[in-house]
Amino acid sequence: MVRQKTQIRKIENLAARQVTFSKRRRGLFKKAQELSTLCDIDMALIVFSATGKLFHYPSSSMNQVLERHRLQSENVGELQQPSREMQIECRKSAMLSKELAEKALELRQMKGQDLQGLDIKGLDKLEAILDSGLVEVVKTKGERMLKEISTLKKKEAQLLEENAHLKQQLAMMDTSIGQMGIHDQCCDHHSLELTISSLSSRVPPQNYHISSSDTCLKLG
């Protein structure tokens, strides 16, 4: 005969229920012992009967197994739940993201984009911000231009000073060259006179009647 499968449901008969509990409890504890021995694991079984009676099976020490279970539960809870510091950082990150989105929207609105969500009051506020910013831009631009003009004027004065100094040096060089030319002419005239005197001392007395024009021609 084929053994019929027992339906898993509550046994209504109290005596039969107690007998089934006793048999299956012993079988469960036996299976737990075999599993602990074969696989070298720590395990503990705790069973309360319908009358509230406690039955348990520890593979080593019930207190040690329960302590390990408590620590493991705490560690799992810490991993599942973010720490306080992490929660604070998450809130800060969310606030910064929101602020960044708001600033990006304001920037687009200043460029004339995404204006559909603004009412008259918002548009007036945006116009006031743009006017104030324009005033500051014009003011800063004027200051920069004045600063650049002042710098260019200083450079112009420096170049004019250098140009005047170069002109003065050039004039001094021209004067020195002119003085050197006069000195050279004087030296040439003095050398010519010495040459004529030397030649005159070598000419015989009978030739003294030669005119100065002839002497000049001969020298020439």
Rank of each mutant, 00 (worst) to 15 (best):
K31D: 15
V76G: 11
K103L: 05
N163S: 04
K10F: 02
L134K: 11
Q158H: 03
E74H: 06
G178H: 13
G122V: 03
S60L: 12
L71T: 15
I210M: 02
R144A: 04
G122H: 06
P58Y: 04
G220W: 07
L118F: 04
D131H: 09
R70F: 02
T6K: 14
K92D: 01
D40R: 10
K31G: 10
L166N: 07
Q80G: 07
T195H: 09
S61A: 09
L130N: 07
E161T: 08
E12R: 08
G133S: 11
S198Y: 07
S61W: 12
H56Q: 15
E143R: 02
F55V: 03
G122K: 01
E67Q: 14
V138I: 08
K98H: 02
E161F: 08
Q33I: 07
D131V: 10
L107M: 13
Q185N: 10
C216P: 13
L115E: 02
Q179H: 05
H56Y: 01
V47F: 03
H190Q: 10
L14A: 07
I120P: 10
L38D: 12
L123W: 06
D174Y: 12
G142T: 14
S97A: 10
Y57I: 04
L146N: 15
T175S: 06
Q169K: 02
E106Q: 10
K10N: 12
T20L: 15
Y57S: 11
V135K: 08
L134Y: 13
L170S: 03
